[in-house]
Nucleic acid binder design. Structure first.
Lengths: 196, 196
DNA sequence: GTCTATAAGATGATAGAC
DNA sequence: GTCTATCATCTTATAGAC
């Protein structure tokens, strides 16, 4: 993890943390400037407007997300293992200090931000859902437990339930709630029987 | 639905809509004042501070929520029917215009608001989870499909997955995503087999 | 109860010097 | 690239008249 190479990335790191813990409208350029020791004008040099900053932020995270998914694919393993690694991305995001999903944070306030930023959110979730669906499709061992008609729905529920679980876990300051939800969703695919 | 009787309620109605569609930090006393034709000072007369307004808002909704649960209990019906009505509370909240859950909205930005407001959020979710768990416990017909050890977990997943589904549905402007998630969660209890 | 007036501070953003 | 200086606006909130 090499970080803080340049100012632009420092800004994004701090902004990302603030988005995840406070939300888009609950942090300011001033908050960022104080934390990294520069003036707000300097932040505007890199990110002229706040939506610019948000968009760059989401793009970066989405890129890291897609890299993580590729790494899972490259790493091999059965569907069970790969899906577990998928849920671990959300657990890692949550971390020890209850960082929520940046896309979820932006989505809750989407009516207040430009279209292109909203599109970043949809792209993220589309990618996650598609990836899960493909894993379900490719896994021969799941043919009986997860019927073809249910795969898209399951992939959607898996993603959105993780998002919801993060928010609730945060409210209760209880990471285990997120872990339990992840385990439950995995159990549906692994051992359970989907009849819908 | 008799509404807008007094100013205090008018304020809460507008504030609730704004919280649900924009988020706590993305609306101001000014927004409210413009929509109902009074000055911001008048709002402060009823709700001295913004957290006061948020707390009153959440208390009211939580009260309505608990009344809705009681109405379901009074109405009778089997577990399947009652749980379906439970999910319909979330669907009704979402409505036609993508209103998110006020508690979810506050939870995402909880680090920026006072403890007593945060507690309102937890109380809401605790109540919902407890209610679902009791329905699962009381339903003899579910004894085999939902083992006792899974009931608490299922009730938690049911609530948090609905919360997450609302956010994602909003991002895609697709109410059906929420409906599908509700159906899926119900199918787990109704016909599926929980093995966790 | 609702208003006017006002305060003190924060906000995103820009111009221009260095 | 980073700074100082400044802007116009918005924000929550209060005091006091009506």
């Amino acid at each position: 993890m090499i970080r803080d190479q340049n100012t632009a990335e420092k800004i994004m790191d701090v902004a990302q943390y603030l988005v995840q813990t406070r939300g888009y409208h609950a942090f300011s350029y001033r908050d960022i400037s104080e934390q990294i020791g520069i003036k707000t004008a300097s932040i505007h040099y890199y990110y002229p407007t706040k939506p610019d900053l948000a968009k760059a932020l989401l793009r970066r995270i989405r890129g890291m997300f897609e890299e993580a998914l590729e790494a899972i694919d490259t790493g091999g393993g059965d569907a069970k293992t790969r899906l577990r690694k998928f849920t671990e991305i959300f657990l890692d995001t949550y971390g020890d200090d209850g960082r929520l999903c940046p896309f979820c944070m932006i989505a809750t306030t989407q009516e207040t931000i430009p279209q292109d930023v909203q599109e970043e959110v949809r792209s993220f979730w589309r990618k996650g859902e598609e990836w899960v669906k493909h894993v379900l499709e490719e896994a021969e061992e799941l043919e009986e437990t997860v019927p073809a008609e249910s795969r898209e729905l399951i992939s959607r529920v898996m993603v959105s339930s993780l998002e919801g679980a993060m928010v609730v876990a945060k409210a209760f300051n209880d990471r285990k709630r997120l872990e339990d939800t992840a385990d439950f969703m995995l159990s549906l695919v692994e051992g359970g029987e989907i009849t819908t």
